[in-house]
Computed example of a mutant assay.
Amino acid sequence: MTGPIPLSGRQPKAVRSALHVLEEVVAAGPGVTAKEISESLAMPQATTYRILNLLVAEEYLVRLPDLSGFALGRRAARLALPATTVLNTAARAVVDHMRAQTRWAVHVAWFAAGQISLIDPDPDHPAPDASQLARFPYAFALGRLLLAEQADWRALVRDVRPFTARTVTSESELDRTLKAVARDGLARQCGEFREDRGCIAVPIRGPRDGRLVAGIALAGPTARIAEPNEEIIKLLRDHAARLAPLLA
């Protein structure tokens, strides 16, 4: 049996340098440039570029679509454990009130470290499978809230596949869809994961910094979800606003 590959004298330093570059991207935020990283870390530009190219190839970083800088990639998001949370008593009362106002399913999701967790699925209605929601966020309204927040949504999506004839899978169409979500503060999908089901979701943001912390969704029959549903959307937004100070 082959034993572990020994590290050379230079490899630990290279690993530390790569970790420093990752930390700098986290600290600086999406769009930080190679030059800025090099200057901040007092690292030779040639070394910085070499490390950045390696981290992009391994999907720990991504280049932004306009090539203006770098952002965390899919694999970097997996390095952080998602924060687990439960609804406190006040938040539970708001969600229960929402459920009492409609016969549709009401689900609440939590967003942390580029990941999505279903923290309060409706106990009286079928809920999305948690693993599928996390793996294929583009096919769910709650997942689209998360993707619309990213500098490059491709960093969080490893596998794009159709689940029904309605599933949006082309990059250009997903780009348009997610830009509309970011603009309107509203995500919708009609029969894209299951032919007979759809959902509408709105974000829950921190009152002070506007940070996306959670989302609340209504799920129901596809035909009903496709309707304008102005009253339902207002109901969602009102309850999201009430939840914001309780979850931020």
Rank of each mutant, 00 (worst) to 15 (best):
T177G: 07
E39N: 12
L247Y: 07
P44R: 12
H97S: 14
F163Q: 00
A134F: 10
V86K: 11
P203V: 03
I216E: 03
M1K: 12
L67G: 05
D196H: 14
S38H: 07
A28L: 13
A42D: 15
V181P: 06
L61C: 10
E36R: 13
M1D: 15
Y138I: 01
R10M: 09
R135S: 14
D196K: 14
R224I: 06
A165E: 15
T2S: 14
L54Y: 13
V160C: 02
K234D: 15
S131D: 15
L54S: 15
E195T: 14
P245D: 07
E59I: 03
I51E: 06
P12S: 05
T177N: 12
L146I: 01
L133K: 03
A165P: 05
L178G: 00
G31P: 08
D209Y: 04
M1G: 15
E149V: 02
I51G: 01
E231A: 11
R188E: 11
V106Y: 00
A241T: 11
R194G: 00
D129H: 12
Q189S: 11
D184Q: 12
L247P: 08
T167F: 11
A240L: 05
L55P: 00
L142M: 09
P82C: 03
A109P: 00
T48R: 08
A240K: 04
H125N: 12
H97L: 06
N229A: 06
I116Q: 09
V202A: 00
L19A: 15
L19G: 12
W110K: 09
A148L: 05
A42G: 11
A223P: 02
G143W: 08
W104G: 00
A80P: 06
W153P: 02
I37K: 01
P82M: 01
Q115A: 02
R208A: 15
R197P: 01
L142D: 00
R158S: 14
V86T: 13
A83M: 13
A34W: 04
E24W: 12
E149T: 06
L67M: 14
E58V: 12
V21L: 02
A113P: 02
L236V: 07
K234F: 14
